[in-house]
Amino acid sequence: MSTREWVPVEQRWFGLDRRTFKAGFSALAIALLLIYGWQGLNAAIPWHNEIRAGQVLDLGNGATAVPPVGWQLEQGTLVGGAGASATSLEVLLAQGGATIELIGTTFDGSAAAFLDQVHRSQGSPPGVTAARGTLTTDSGLVGVVESGSGPSGDGVDVAFKMGTGDAADSAPALLVRVRTASGQFEHYEDQVGAMLRSITPGAAR
């Protein structure tokens, strides 16, 4: 060790060099403030973005859905808001530990093939999965439904292609992912079902 790196005895504190405290601890303080300060503030501020009757979700490209009243919109925009992209859509609704995500992306192929790809990449709904079914919205879109239930929670994945007829395969894909605590899905089943049936394709139709 060179004399320049030598720590004089009066500068030592449990083997550390007191002269390095200023830089080291100020850096640590700023880092902790950024990491935990914002998280603490975020936890202290409640959501006040409740869906009211008549509000409609913007799913991009003119597509829409009617979200359940009373749920908090934590991500995504309503019709008349900042606008949304059908191929990079991220909507998150939350209510009492249950969440509904609407994720839009590009996918060439059918809704069933899209759901296969989703589950290949990210796994199936939690627990034991039921046989696939279909769901037809009020506007005529046909979605593929797969649900699961287990100790880690209940889940439903519904895949749509946001177009009908010949345009369906090349239309944007929409995944609706519902997650609740174990055995809780039936409490939300009607609200989720109503929202799913309200999904309407836009210009791609």
Partner: peptide
């Protein structure tokens, strides 16, 4: 990964809570 990832997620949520999701998105 240590600072920006959690800090950005929290602050983005704060903007959405304060100004609404449209404001936060924009």
């Amino acid at each position: 990964f240590w600072i920006a990832l959690p800090a950005n997620a929290a602050l983005l949520a704060i903007w959405a809570k304060i100004g609404g999701t449209s404001f936060a998105q924009a």
